[in-house]
Design a protein around this nucleic acid. Structure first.
Lengths: 131, 131
DNA sequence: GATGATGTTGACAATCATTATCATTAAGAA
DNA sequence: TTCTTAATGATAATGATTGTCAACATCATC
């Protein structure tokens, strides 16, 4: 059965402390900097588990790197992401749900799912760009 | 200046012949099978050029592989993609455009862009699954 | 049509994120 | 405390993608 290790705990905590999408490598650096001797493979495993368990959302950066962010479990949601700092917030998209269903149906596609990301420049980055 | 080579031409043609999202490696195999001696790096370069030039759309597969598909240039559009065969069609999402803009604005995010993918099982695959 | 500058190609090496391996460690049930 | 076995971590392996660079081919110009 599943076991609780301080490593899983540490990854969960470290990810929750971020409000941006971060890579496994970044999180590993953070955890190492905190003095833990956690292994890189373990961070990858923990993040993958969180993603399949719905405790984290993931997306691919433009460079193809996998990025993760802690999320509200069990709830269908999307993200508004800052293009420059990675900061992200969950957003609701009630209108989209229905739209996706109907567009899939109108083309004869079954079992529709959808992915929506809105990118932009967050207030902090917009302000910083003006300096 | 940009030059026209049979390699670029071949990649463009081969991609246009597909109505599914395909990887650079797959396209390379197809081109090799056609008897051309085109190099893998060249296929990657051609696809990257098409993507930045708006002549192709790209997305990352679940495995992190980059997939490409020829698209209508200059026109903002999204895709309805078959989860099992990769087959894809362009879809309009007028409602989404406005929604994305307003949700970004309401959170103070500037220069909004958005990405929308609807996945499903295409009619052909749905039919095949019943056999 | 020939020429020359230079953008392009292709074989192969290099990169780098991610995964597999496997001996060792440590949860947690008994 | 003991034992079963899931989890860890160091490291090797994988595999897609990119960099390198000599050889080549396009196309403006002669």
């Amino acid at each position: 059965m599943k076991r609780n290790t301080w490593q899983r705990e540490a990854v969960t905590t470290a990810l929750a402390a971020q409000d941006a999408f971060v890579s496994a490598q970044q999180l590993h650096s953070v955890l190492r900097a905190e003095g833990t001797g956690i292994g890189l493979a373990t961070v990858y495993r923990a993040l993958a588990d969180m993603a399949v368990g719905g405790r984290a959302d993931s997306l691919q950066s433009a460079e193809g790197e996998a990025l993760y962010r802690a999320c509200t479990p069990g709830e269908h949601h999307h993200h508004l992401i800052c293009r420059s700092c990675g900061q992200a917030e969950e957003i609701e998209a009630v209108e989209i749900e229905q739209w996706a269903k109907s567009i899939a149906a109108s083309h004869g596609y079954a079992k529709p799912e959808h992915v929506v990301y809105v990118f932009g420049e967050c207030p902090a980055c917009t302000a910083a760009a003006l300096i």
